[in-house]
Design a protein around this nucleic acid. Structure first.
Length: 471
RNA sequence: GCCGCUUUCGUCUAGUGGCUUAGGACGCUUGGUUCUCAACCAAGAAAUCACGGGUUCGAUUCCCGUAAGCGGCACCA
């Protein structure tokens, strides 16, 4: 059997977004599943809209996600190849120059639309005589190159959808290039997929109506036809195609918020695919082993951020403390804290199971890095107890803390000693004010956990500050 | 408007004619644990399988319509 070759072909006209990544991922998985080749092809034929920084964004994020490509191409570097095939079509009479003005075309389109006909080019320049053509070219009239679309029914087998049929007679002669050195999407794709011997074209469903155009072009050029698989769309909450309207869905944005690459991959693969059993969590390697196009869905899937959070949280819980500390460090630093890694490891151990995304570490654990805490006095009071009770509890804490030796300063020992020595109604009587005094928050890790990380000196200091607040 | 695709709990989905009183996960609710928040455990609510008609002894599963939704209809990709 022929070796599988797939490609991910983004255009660098914007940041890589989640919809793109899902397409990239499925191409990657399908190729790697059969030990095939995964090609990254930058489709930068649109000179105005393509920008190097967007290409960089694509490259960086794919790398970060672990979707490494085996071959890399840039369409802007392949103009001679397109020119060659363009000339071929022109000389064979399968393509022709069109001198129609854009505004005329637009008027035509509007007219067709209002009459309820499918808008398509009528083929005015198809019948230009050689003399007219010569004259127009000599006068350097603005023109484009159109493909003479044969009026026939095009049908193809889609690996996900089965047989799909289109009537090419309805689409009119499409523009395939602005000139010999400026090919357009539908043309460059066909040439490249052939030249790069792509065996499987796996792309979003939004390309399904481009497929017949590309097939006709292949036939005109004498190319072989790759297999097609059109993926269901990734949708926003309103069930329309995921786009800027739904907010910033760039990979970079998710990365900044502290989503892990393995979580993004795991989340995305489950949008339109499943292994057929109840498993939910997969590594990229497992996915490579399990993936198959047969199990890909037909219907679009809504991007559900809550589910991403859950998956991300479960990956965060799998990280070692060392890794997690390193991941969290930049967030605290950009919040203005000086971060010592060994300390951070301890801090992170308290919050590992609470984090849904790395950026949350700042809101959870900032109090470990602050010199002075600030919180309302009333926060120290717990439920039925009074401020006086809180003060009493804290004074007991101060005494107990002061009595402990430095080498006894562990979570277990602290808990044991505090609970044994203090006189209290219920645990909350002591634990709530102590926890608030140490963290300045209504929700946090337990007071003894915090104290063990904070150390004796800082713990006593914060207890005293709380007492003062209550005095 | 035309062409195409799609349709199982709010969401992601299992399900390939009887094993289904339609299963799992996220989210949600309640309880356990508990000083709080998470995590964890347990329980619960949540889908007349879009609708109508066939085929069949029997349809979520097969066929045909209808509806709705979405996608495409560029000198963007």
């Amino acid at each position: 059997m022929k070796k599988v070759r797939t490609r991910f072909a983004p255009s660098p006209t914007g940041a890589l977004h989640m919809g793109n990544v899902r397409a990239a991922l499925f191409n990657y998985l399908f190729a790697k599943h059969t030990e095939g080749t995964f090609v990254l092809r930058i489709e930068d034929t649109d000179k105005e809209r393509s920008k190097p920084e967007w290409e960089q964004d694509i490259v960086d994020n794919l790398t970060w996600l672990g979707l490494e490509w085996d071959e890399f191409y840039r369409q802007s570097e392949r103009t001679e190849i397109y020119a060659k095939y363009l000339t071929q079509l022109l000389t064979q009479g399968k393509a022709y120059y069109c001198f129609c003005k854009e505004e005329d075309l637009e008027a035509q389109r509007q007219d067709q639309l209002s009459r309820g006909v499918a808008p398509s080019y009528k083929g005015t320049c198809r019948t230009l005589t050689p003399k007219e053509l010569e004259k127009n070219l000599q006068e350097k009239k603005p023109c484009v190159i159109r493909f003479l679309v044969p009026a026939k029914i095009v049908s193809f087998h889609d690996l996900i959808r089965g047989q799909v049929k289109f009537d090419a007679g309805l689409m009119g002669d499409i523009v395939i290039a602005k000139d010999l050195t400026t090919p357009l999407y539908n043309f460059s794709v066909v040439v490249d997929d052939f030249e790069m011997t792509i065996t499987h074209v796996i792309r979003g469903e939004d390309h399904i109506s481009n497929t017949p155009k590309q097939i006709l072009l292949q036939e005109a050029l004498g190319f072989t036809r790759p297999a097609y698989a059109h993926l269901p769309l990734v949708l926003g909450g309103d069930r329309t195609k995921l786009s800027k309207r739904h907010g910033d869905n760039s990979v970079t944005q998710f990365r900044i918020q502290g989503y892990l690459p393995e979580a993004i991959v795991n989340f995305l693969v489950l949008l339109g695919w499943n292994p057929g059993d109840n498993r939910e969590l997969f590594t990229l390697e497992e996915l490579v082993k399990e993936f198959s196009l047969e199990r890909v869905h037909k219907g679009g899937a809504v991007f559900n951020p809550k589910r991403l959070d859950w998956i991300n949280g479960s990956y965060i819980r799998k990280k070692s403390l060392k890794e997690l500390a390193e991941f969290c460090k930049p967030y605290l630093e950009s919040a203005g804290f000086d971060v010592d890694l060994p300390l951070l490891e301890k801090v992170v151990s308290l919050y590992q199971e609470r984090l849904k995304k790395l950026s949350e570490i700042v809101g959870f654990a900032d109090f470990f890095f602050k010199d002075k805490l600030s919180y309302p006095k009333d926060m120290l009071r717990w439920k039925k107890y009074t401020e006086k009770d809180a003060k009493d509890a804290l004074e007991q804490c101060e005494n107990i803390a002061a009595s402990l030796k430095a080498d006894e300063w562990t979570k277990e020992k602290l808990e044991q000693v505090f609970l044994a020595k203090a006189t209290m109604g219920d645990r909350g009587y002591l634990l709530w004010p102590l926890r608030v005094a140490l963290s300045g928050k209504e929700a946090s890790a337990g007071p003894f956990e915090i104290a063990s990380v904070l150390g004796k000196e800082k713990t006593v200091e914060r207890i005293q500050e709380a007492i003062q607040l209550l005095s």
